[in-house]
Structures are given as C-alpha cells and as structure tokens.
Design a protein around this nucleic acid. Sequence first.
DNA 1: CCGCCGTCAAGAGCAGTGCTCTCGTTGTGG
DNA 2: CCACAACGAGAGCACTGCTCTTGACGGCGG
Lengths: 227, 227
Amino acid sequence: MTAASIRARLRAEMTDEIKAAARRHLATDGANLSLRAVARDLGMASSAVYRYFASRDELLTALIIDAYDSLGAAAENASGTGSAVDRWLAVCHAVREWALANPHEWALVYGSPVPGYQAPTDTVGPAIRVILALGRIVQDASASGEVVPGEPIGGRLGEELAVVAEQAAPGAPPQLVARSMAGWIHLCGAVSAELFGQLNNTIDARRDFFDFQMRGALTWIGLRASS
Amino acid sequence: MTAASIRARLRAEMTDEIKAAARRHLATDGANLSLRAVARDLGMASSAVYRYFASRDELLTALIIDAYDSLGAAAENASGTGSAVDRWLAVCHAVREWALANPHEWALVYGSPVPGYQAPTDTVGPAIRVILALGRIVQDASASGEVVPGEPIGGRLGEELAVVAEQAAPGAPPQLVARSMAGWIHLCGAVSAELFGQLNNTIDARRDFFDFQMRGALTWIGLRASS
DNA sequence: CCGCCGTCAAGAGCAGTGCTCTCGTTGTGG
DNA sequence: CCACAACGAGAGCACTGCTCTTGACGGCGG
C-alpha cells in the first residue's frame, strides 16, 4: 500500500498538474491547445505527457468531464430551496456565472464540436447533471401543483418527450418537460450568445437582460411563483 | 479594360475556387483547416494561395462573410408575406434549414469563437442581416398593431434596448424588441443545440420540436396571429 | 513590334505541432 | 535483493502556417 499509493498519488498529482496547465492554455489556444506547450509549462518533455494521457483527445476528454462536473455541481448547489421559480432562476444564474468565470470551458462543452473529436460515453453522465438539476425542480413543481399543465403533445415528438420525462422528471407531464427543455436550450443559447460576442456593442446590461430572458421563458414554461 | 479585366476575372475565379475548396475542408477540419491541403486540392503550391489571401485568418474571414451573407439571404427570402407570426416562423425555419444544409459554416459563425481570431468590422454588416430581417417583421407588426406591447423596461437595459429598437425596428416599443431579441437568441440556441449534438439520443422529431419551441417563444414575444 | 514591369506559381526553408520509438534511470513488489 | 514496471528525456517522422527567393508569363508603353 505504502509504495503503490505513493506512486499512485504522484501520478494523480501529475495528472492534475497537466490538466491545470492545459486549462490555462485553453484560454489562449482554445480546443486546439499545444501539448508541447503544456509540457514546456511543466518543464517536462512532451513525450512524458503521453505517460498520463494517451493522446491530446484524451486530455481534452478529461477537461470536458471536469468542466461538466464543475458546472453540474454549481447548478446543483444553486437549485436548493424556495419556490420552483426561484430555484429555476437560481440555476440559470448559477450556470451563467459559472460560464462567465470559465468561458473557455463553456466553449469546450457547449461550443462548436471539435472537428475530429468524438465524445466518449464517459462524458454523458457529467453532461446531464445540470439537466437533471432542472428536471428535479420541474418534477417537484409538478408534484406540488406549482405548474400550468398546457396542451399535450402528440405524434412521435410526444412519445420521445414521454421517455425524456420518465428519465429526467418522472411524473411530470411530457408537454411540461418539453417546455422545460426549451427553457434549458434558451438558457444555453443566452449564455453562448453573451460569451461568444453576439451581444457586443449592443447590450451591456447583460445580467439584467439575461434575467429578463429567463423570467420570460419561465412564464411560458408554466412554473408558478408558489403553490 | 480588356487586359486588366481579364486579370481581375481570373483572379476572382481563382479566389472563388480557393474558397470553395476551403469550404469543403471546413467539413472535416473545422475552423483550423489546412491551407496546404486546400492548395493540394487545387493542384497548386501552398505559397501560391498567399497571393489571394494574406493569411489563413483572412481566408476564414472571407468564409465567414460568405456564410453570413448566405444565411442572411435565406432569412430575407423567407420573411416575405403573411401574418407576422407566419413570417417570423418562416424565418426561423429558413435559418434552421440553412444551418442543417451548412452545419460547418453555422459552427463557424455561431459556434465558439476561433481562439486567436478577431473578426474584422467587415463582418458586422452581413452578420446582422438575419437580425434585421426579424426586426422588419417586428416593426411591421408593431405598426399594424399585431402585437402585445407588454410592460416597459427601465434602467440601463431599457436605454440600450431603445437604441437597438431605433436601429433594428424603428417605432417598435423597446420591450417588444427585447422579447424579439430573446426569440432570436432562442432561435440560435435551438439550432446550435440540434447541430452540436445536445439532442442526440433524446429527440429525433427535431423539426417538430424546433417548431414547438419557436411557436412557444412567439407566444411570449407577443406577435399576434393577424391584425 | 519590342522590352519592361507587375503578377503569378513554385520551391526551399523556419519554427512549431502530434505522436512514436528507443534508451537510460528510478523506485517498487515479490 | 533483484527483476520488472513505470517514468522522463531525446530523436525522429510527417505535418502545419508562413516567409523568402527564384523564375516565368502576360499585358502595356514606347
């Protein structure tokens, strides 16, 4: 135990240092960061990095998982208490603030996909944490009646939404889940628009505008202020 | 005229061929396409490409402008006739269909920004064509009363929105312009979510879901079916 | 009609990249 | 205590964007 754990601990520390350096380079180089530059930052040969990550894509995957987990934790932290509306808005603002604090990691996970990169299945678990956090709010609101049911959705879309509802917010009506998904998509769109420069030279009161958008989406989603 | 125009025409043709080849490579390599590979495709030396584009960034800028123009034309074409709701939805679907037909160009303009790349001012003109197309619809609807005014917005956000309203939809109330901007952002978010894989293994009835989202956003925006 | 100059393409070259392979060293489990 | 696994370093391959030089072709002024 002693020896192996020492090796293992050193390996874990080295892995973290590489990821930290890579995260730093993410800011300047984006998704196509230079493994050699990362190695230089750490004072090691570029080939040594390959002892820890089999390829640059694997390093990126690790960064992506970390980003999803960090964002998911932020969302879960914010989804605590209050009315469904308050909880939903808190999650929205938490996501936005996380993205503002970690813009390049947001771009990594919600921006354009890296060309040759195929996300492994390890990423889907962390990826849906924020969705599940929103789903719990919707589920709770639905259970306590803080919700406008709306008209059912038929066809194949209706069936697919029923499956989503079962997984993310069991008990909630599919049409409510559909509107919530739209709200999540609007959330992602609003954050990306702000981060990717679509609001430049146009809107400076960005928090207010974001809040305005999320509240507006909320009225359509149909979460009520309280039971 | 004769000689210079011959030269100029050859140059324009060559420029177009380079852009076409670069667009082809955009599909596989994304924003970090290989200038040498483009040159290889055209059977010319990589250095010869620099006669037409001073750098790879300049080539990318040309592609970006072309993409904005193409998308803008598609949006303008679709914004023709009918009620404000019909015109708005037509533009939304036109944007989505253009994006589905040109996914990599969509990623180029609405995806994560290229790291070291700073968009020159030449791009803003083409960039706002689709926004202006939507703005005209809102303006017309406002003029003919097909609109729910809603509550005014105060503070700095209100002032900024008034400026936007003046530029994009003169005469329309700022709060309506704000809701329309949110609709445009939701539109971009929905297209990006679909294109960037956020709906994978979840929603297959994508056109229906997109339509559902845009109609929902529309009810909140406050465009009425007809006067 | 000829020479000249601007435009063009090609090639070599530089610094940098991802990744592989080999070679010593070091530390650890049996 | 020693063989073996893990590790770091370096060289090397094919590739990249970009620059510089060289040579050739074509249209215009004299």
